[in-house]
Design a protein around this nucleic acid. Structure first.
Length: 601
DNA sequence: AAAAAAT
């Protein structure tokens, strides 16, 4: 057995790791990001607060719902998987059968692994004064460090391996809320660390709860996940799965992904080996439920990423089926977390069906409100779009950033449009690829890889790529065709300007987009962007209403406050009896060295 | 009207 980098870290980490059976001597190697850190900066292990925190999510009372009777005081699933302690890594479920793949890929060559990460130069100052609004009853106080909450040593190690030093604003608020067992509707720009915000509490909760959770009924070939994470696209589910695997590494918490377009057999095998957290797209999950290969009766956590999309017309029936018409415990018996950058009122109203006594959390729109993304709108007739795009691409050809070609993501309206634009770009000497829902899953993943690697630095995409995908180094988002919904615009431009980096978003506007004029103009104004005079004129004439968010710093407001406190929509600090406001500043004091980053997803 | 999501 090779000495993994992870083992070395563990050995180097002070604080007395409980349950580590050190049968062999390990080197005392300290990885770069942990050097120069005083031992005292490590989170203490298992402070007394842990016991009380654990009560917060004690939803084990729904025992009556499942068959099979007796409460199990021991670990479930056989094999003594958890063994009652944090950080039990070697015992149990994976013994002999498979070695858990190190998702950090740093077993042998740590330096190289970290050298490839390009997360220096993060502009923490840009996040200093992010406004935060919470509403709901008894909102738990936010934390300022990961150590303020005991997530468990194994998870803490993974947080360190990810080089997350400070929680992001959404994490500071969302993690204590979900650790306290509360339902949550969270509005925060993708790229602000949402994935970790719901994964950390889930993983931690599964680890701590395992010895209390009822053993699932003995049903061969039926999987009983404790957490379900749903997302609207296959690629996003993959991405969440990859992230969750990192966070869950050597915690004993098993993460499996299931989505369409890929052979189901491997997914079935993965499920049979055991799953605690299932990441899925809705269609494939319904399939698995109908085949009776997955049961939701042990679900303790439900997370919907891009929740407003999941509840819009296209997805709502499937989501209702999964959440309300199968065997999932009802609200109050499970913990539900909804995340998105945008949350229209009407969707919030729908979402209330899935929640119980929830807390609404809004973190100021990072991407569009901090000048990190420069937004431009140009009037381009339909017939001129291609040559105009060509001009843009020519102009930026020379602007490669540190040797790497700047990536350009071009959004179009239709799948056909994506194909034809890709073809046109290619025959005109621009290395482009395309992604849309009519391509095979292989083609989709290939396109994404080829784009990320810079092999084809231009990606033409439909809205399949609009949400959630984290593609580093996207310098330019072009809205070749503007969407009809301003929320889609927000998600699209959010593919650039991530992790504190700057980005450019160019929109081609013409008479077909007049319905968007008003909201686009308002949005840009709020983000301190230069609004062209012609756009202001079109917006002023527009018969379409003002941005339904009512302007301001948040992607949405708690609709529950709307009726009693609607005074023009800008009064976020109006002193409603259920509202709380915090200022998120104070955490990013600049105490970071190169290569150390916060948890911007 | 379009896109996404099961086979």
């Amino acid at each position: 057995m090779t000495t993994s980098w992870a083992d070395s870290v563990e050995n180097a980490a002070p604080g007395g790791v409980v349950g580590t059976s050190s049968t062999q001597s390990r080197s005392a190697y300290v990885p770069p990001h942990l050097r120069n850190r005083p031992p005292s900066s490590d989170p203490p292990t298992a402070p007394p607060s842990y016991a009380t925190a654990a009560l917060g999510n004690d939803r084990s009372g729904y025992g009556g719902m499942s068959a099979g009777g007796s409460r199990s005081s021991g670990p479930r699933g056989g094999g003594g998987r958890i063994g009652g302690g944090w950080n039990n890594r070697s015992g149990g479920w994976d013994r002999g059968r498979e070695r858990e793949v190190n998702p950090f890929g740093d077993d042998d060559d740590t330096e190289q692994a970290f050298g490839e990460q390009e997360n220096t130069g993060i502009n923490f100052d840009a996040y200093e004064d992010i406004p935060v609004e919470t509403s709901g009853e008894n909102v738990p106080r936010p934390v300022t460090t990961f150590a303020d909450i005991d997530l468990g040593e194994a998870l803490n190690q993974n947080i360190r391996r990810c080089k997350y030093v400070k929680p992001t604003p959404v994490q500071r608020h969302a993690i204590p809320i979900s650790i306290a067992g509360r339902d949550l509707m969270a509005c925060a720009q993708t790229g602000s660390g949402k994935t970790a915000a719901f994964c950390f509490p889930i993983i931690s909760g599964i680890m701590r709860g395992n010895q209390f959770v009822q053993r699932p009924p003995r049903m061969p070939r039926m999987a009983f996940p404790q957490a379900l994470i749903l997302s609207p696209t296959r690629e996003l589910s993959c991405q969440i799965h990859d992230e969750a695997k990192k966070f869950a590494y050597q915690t004993g918490v098993r993460v499996v992904v299931a989505y369409g377009g890929a052979p189901i057999n491997q997914q079935l095998r993965d499920l049979e080996r055991g799953v605690d957290i299932l990441v899925a797209t809705p269609g494939r999950l319904v399939d698995l439920l109908e085949r009776a290969r997955v049961s939701l009766q042990m679900i303790r956590y439900l997370a919907l990423d891009e929740a407003d999309r999941m509840l819009d017309m296209g997805f709502e029936p499937q989501i209702r089926k999964i959440v309300q018409q199968m065997d999932m415990p009802p609200p109050g018996m499970r913990q539900t977390m909804l995340f998105s950058a945008t949350f229209p009122k009407e969707i919030q109203r729908l979402a209330a069906d899935f929640l119980s006594g929830y807390i609404f959390l809004a973190v100021g729109r990072v991407g569009s409100s901090t000048d990190l993304i420069v937004q431009r709108v140009e009037f381009v007739h339909e017939s001129d779009k291609r040559s105009h795009l060509m001009d843009l691409l020519h102009a930026q050809k020379t602007n490669g950033v540190h040797g790497k070609q700047a990536l350009t993501l071009v959004f179009v309206e239709t799948k056909k449009g994506a194909d034809s634009l890709e073809h046109w770009l290619c025959i005109n000497g621009f290395p482009a690829t395309a992604i849309h829902g009519d391509r095979t899953q292989q083609e989709r993943e290939q396109a994404l890889r080829s784009f990320k690697s810079g092999l084809t630095p231009i990606l033409v995409a439909t809205d399949v790529a609009a949400r959630g995908l984290d593609i580093p180094h996207v310098a330019h988002v072009v809205n070749f065709d503007l969407p009809n919904d301003i929320d889609d615009y927000v998600h699209r431009i959010g593919r650039t300007g991530r992790a504190g980096k700057t980005g450019l978003a160019t929109a081609f506007f013409n008479e077909n987009n007049s319905s968007l004029a008003r909201s686009l103009s308002d949005l840009m104004q709020e983000a301190n962007q230069e609004v062209p005079a012609w756009l202001s004129r079109v917006a002023a004439r527009s018969i379409y209403g003002k941005n339904r968010r009512g302007g301001g710093r948040f992607g949405a407001r708690d609709f529950r406050r709307e009726s009693s406190f609607s005074r023009g929509g800008t009064d976020y600090y109006g002193g409603g009896n259920m509202g709380n406001n915090y200022n998120a500043s104070g955490g990013y004091g600049g105490a970071y060295g190169a290569g150390v980053t916060s948890a911007w997803d």
